[in-house]
Design a binder for these strands. Structure first.
Lengths: 232, 232
DNA sequence: CGTGCACTTGAGGCACGTCAACGTTCGTGG
DNA sequence: CCACGAACGTTGACGTGCCTCAAGTGCACG
């Protein structure tokens, strides 16, 4: 029995819709790998040698200016695709935020397989277009929203995106309480803020009764409507 | 003779590499359209009903917050692809900056044609992946660079991207002098700044002898090395 | 029970936004 | 050809939101 048969993201990743014989081929090309929190899979600027599917966990895509200012340019969740097929160098690093399991392919192998399987390329195209939409929306946030709006937007987005991952939830319903896969520093890196500003904004939202912060890594959304108003 | 035969971007757009019979089919589906500066082709939030190739000119992709703050999330040049195939609503408006000619397709027609032509989808995928890379690089600029660095980076990028469009150039050599397709307001919208800040930074670069500003729409890059240093 | 790290809180400064006045270019019609 | 006005751009004075620097505070580890 191939690993794909038991894959958690079997029906949501780009491999969905492949014939079982194709899946078999893909399975022989790829291998599973577990990443510890903080462990990197791809480094910014390196030649693009591997691509992967996320099976479990959350990873960040990050890029930095020469003098060390970091910006998180994307966050990927289970079933998402990682890496840069068909070309050149990696524009950003990929690092696990939580413990993560991924399904890794050599880029050359994957490129060849993809070129021979239009259905896979189509899935990949749809996913890439979606990612581009999300990234562009994030640009508006980065350049035009205030710190308060940024933090509120971030918390709402987390409660939406973590639904797909979590177990104890009604499908489609955003979460009321969840654990952040991010440290304060990482939240700051996502939002283009400093750690102090994030901390202050979180405290304000708590003080105003919009959210609760039972522990440093968990969040309760108490007044979702208010949070949406603040997010702008 | 089909319009495609004389198309300026025949060998660079996603149609490149199609058989002449396929091109013939595509030609019957699409139609040419000329846009005046400021004219919009697609509006943010509208259902995605059309896609297009840029033949000539420069267009902006823009998105706004509810209260009217605008952010330009992308700029497209000849041979670039516009629109959102395969799904939903347009995440951003598309507006001509210069007079522009585009090759427009009904999205439904294009989707069907693309699904039947893997080579086209592959081109589109490569283009989309490239656009995603560029967009992510721009995120770092928006959130982590200073006004001075932003303006310097913008001018360098313009001199690179306009090469492909211009006529009087050595291929691959960035331009020393060029006309901006942007007003100051639009530059501000690209960089996430205000018009006043852009103006001040341009004046500073001029005062320091790094650039020249012969007219309000044209730029000379006098000291490219210095500009690159400033861009960070 | 200390040591270290993540986070919070506070005080102060600065880059950029805001508001306002002025200069320059360009189109339009007399 | 010039007069006029509107749009665009520049410059200045001032305010403020976020960053910087620095000192706590609380939790997790040996």
């Amino acid at each position: 029995m191939s690993a794909c048969d038991t894959c958690l993201v079997r029906n949501r990743a780009i491999c969905a819709g492949l014939e079982s014989s194709e899946l078999e081929t893909l399975n022989t090309m790829g291998r599973r790998r577990t990443l510890q929190p903080g462990e990197a899979l791809i480094w910014e600027g390196d030649e693009s040698v591997l691509v992967a599917n996320v099976i479990e966990g959350v990873l960040k895509l990050s890029s930095a200016t020469e003098d060390g200012r970091e910006q998180i340019v994307g966050v990927v969740y289970p079933a998402d695709f990682i890496g840069r097929p068909f070309a050149g160098a990696a524009g950003h690093s990929v690092t696990a935020l939580t413990e993560a399991r991924v399904c890794v392919f050599a880029r050359a192998d994957f490129d060849r397989f993809a070129s021979e399987h239009p259905k896979l390329e189509h899935k990949l195209l749809e996913r890439t277009l979606g990612e581009l939409d999300r990234t562009r929306k994030w640009m508006v946030l980065l350049s035009r929203k205030t710190a308060q709006e940024k933090v509120a937007t971030f918390l709402l987005e987390m409660s939406d995106r973590l639904v797909e991952t979590g177990c104890d939830h009604v499908p489609g319903m955003p979460l009321k309480s969840f654990d952040l896969p991010f440290s304060r520093q990482q939240i700051a890196d996502v939002l283009g803020l400093t750690i102090e500003t994030v901390s202050r904004q979180m405290t304000m939202l708590k003080r105003d009764g919009v959210i609760g912060l039972p522990t440093r890594r968990s969040v309760d959304i108490i007044d979702r409507t208010a949070l949406q108003d603040i997010a702008g």
